[in-house]
């Protein structure tokens, strides 16, 4: 077999394509480890861009604390606080799933609904 005739896709990729919905095939790259690892640069770039734009388009009506990228800081701190608070809160508030003695797994149950 000539070099140019070699399949470009690995066996894993061929299997993944075969299993995927036809409309999803062009977007399978979204699931690759490389994309997931480097996705951070998209919001990073966006955050820097809009922080700079904050000086180009300052708010017409200002809050007492306003400066160019004050809402970038508020967004970052708020989000991080919510997520980091989850660690102690989970320890404090989590119990086994059957804690109340009535929880079952969710299961689809409306397809066979009685007439």
């Amino acid at each position: 077999m000539a070099k140019s005739d070699k399949p470009k896709l690995s066996a894993k990729e061929i299997k993944e394509r075969a299993e995927a919905h036809p409309m999803a095939v062009p977007f399978l790259w979204l699931g690759t480890a490389k994309v997931q690892k480097n996705f951070i640069f998209v919001p990073l770039f966006g955050m820097i861009l809009f922080s700079v734009l904050g000086y180009v388009y300052p708010l017409h009506h200002k809050a007492p604390w306003d400066f160019g990228f004050s809402y970038t800081i508020i967004g970052f701190v708020s989000y991080s606080f919510v997520v980091l608070a989850a660690w102690p809160l989970f320890k404090l508030l989590s119990r086994p799933e059957n804690y109340y003695g009535e929880d079952g797994d969710d299961a689809k149950n409306d397809d066979k609904g009685g007439q």
Binding site: I40, V42, P43, L44, G46, M47, L49, F50, S51, L53, G54, V56, Y57, L59, F69, Y71, T72, I73, I74, G75, F76, S78, Y79, S80, V83
Partner: peptide, 13 residues
């Protein structure tokens, strides 16, 4: 810009 600052910062976080 104000709205996108919050959204992008949260996504980056």
């Amino acid at each position: 810009v104000f709205q996108m600052q919050i959204i992008m910062a949260a996504m980056f976080a």
